[in-house]
Computed example of a mutant assay.
Amino acid sequence: MREIVFDTETTGLSFSNGDRLVEIGCVELFNRVETGQTYHAYFHPERPMAPEAQAIHGLSDAFLADKPLFAENCDDLLEFLGDSPLVAHNASFDFGFLNGELKRCGRQMLSLSRMIDTVAMARTRHPGAKHSLDALCTRFGIDRSHRVLHGALLDAQLLAQVYVELTGGRQIGLTLVSEMVEHAASPVDASRSVVRPQRIFAASTEEAARHSQFLEGVNNPLWGPLETR
């Protein structure tokens, strides 16, 4: 199953109050395994950056000055997302900004039925514990030493590892009865499982005869004469 783990950075906390999306990072998973396919973009917010937000992600007005508007890259983003389930940490926040930008440029908003919230998952699995991305990385032994500031793609990559742990760990991808067959047309194409036929391990009549002939040629075998076995 294809899933997209994503994270956003914004100018503030509320799209309805005028804040805007300035960065999005997406990581593709197939059967809970990263495929190496990612999407990352910065956007000009058409408003000044709040100092409090800049202190978190480090994105200044000067850095964003030459970046495209969200509407200019909207098609590329939607193509990458496809119709896959979308995983985010405190997902209602990220969905609120993403759907706000989509609505603003006249596009259909994403269905909330696609939303998977890792905060809700963590609260169910570890009630009473801390559920920040940093805390979950520490809990699961995920290296976050390179996370000095928040960054959408870096945080999505860390969250992808957290999500795998929250859904059973890396062993869930192991299987002895199926193999992945991926269509190469595009990174958003679906994949399917093919059941392998049962393998026969019994020796053939010819192989059994050769084996008996070999044993008969062994002098003083530890297992004794063949006729006594």
Score class of each variant (00 low, 15 high):
M1G: 15
E3N: 04
F6Q: 09
T10W: 04
T10C: 07
G12I: 14
L13K: 11
L13W: 13
L13A: 15
S14Y: 13
S14M: 12
F15S: 00
N17R: 15
R20Y: 11
E34V: 10
G36F: 08
H40E: 12
A41S: 14
Y42K: 10
Y42L: 15
E46H: 10
R47H: 03
M49L: 09
A50Y: 04
L59K: 03
L59D: 01
L59S: 05
S60G: 00
F63G: 01
L64Y: 08
L64V: 09
A71E: 10
D75E: 14
D76P: 06
L78H: 11
L78M: 14
F80T: 09
G82R: 04
D83N: 10
D83P: 00
L86K: 11
A88W: 02
A91L: 07
D94I: 06
F97C: 04
F97P: 00
L98T: 01
L98C: 13
G100Q: 06
R104E: 12
R104L: 15
R104A: 02
Q108M: 06
Q108T: 07
Q108R: 04
M109P: 01
M109A: 12
L110E: 02
S111D: 00
L112C: 03
R114Y: 01
M115E: 03
I116G: 02
I116L: 07
M121K: 07
A122I: 02
G128Y: 10
G128W: 06
S132R: 01
L133Q: 08
R144W: 08
R144K: 12
S145H: 14
S145P: 09
R147M: 10
V148T: 08
H150Q: 07
L153P: 02
Q161F: 03
Y163M: 05
T167E: 01
G168N: 05
R170C: 08
G173P: 02
G173L: 12
T175P: 06
L176G: 15
E182D: 14
A184E: 12
A185D: 14
S186L: 00
P187H: 07
V188K: 11
S191Q: 13
S193L: 15
S193N: 11
V194P: 00
V195R: 15
R196S: 11
P197H: 02
Q198Y: 05
Q198K: 09
I200F: 04
A202N: 12
T205S: 11
E206G: 03
E207R: 01
E207A: 14
R210H: 14
R210M: 08
H211R: 08
H211Q: 06
H211W: 07
E216I: 07
E216Q: 13
V218L: 14
N219H: 04
N219G: 05
L222I: 10
W223V: 09
P225I: 02
E227H: 05
T228A: 08
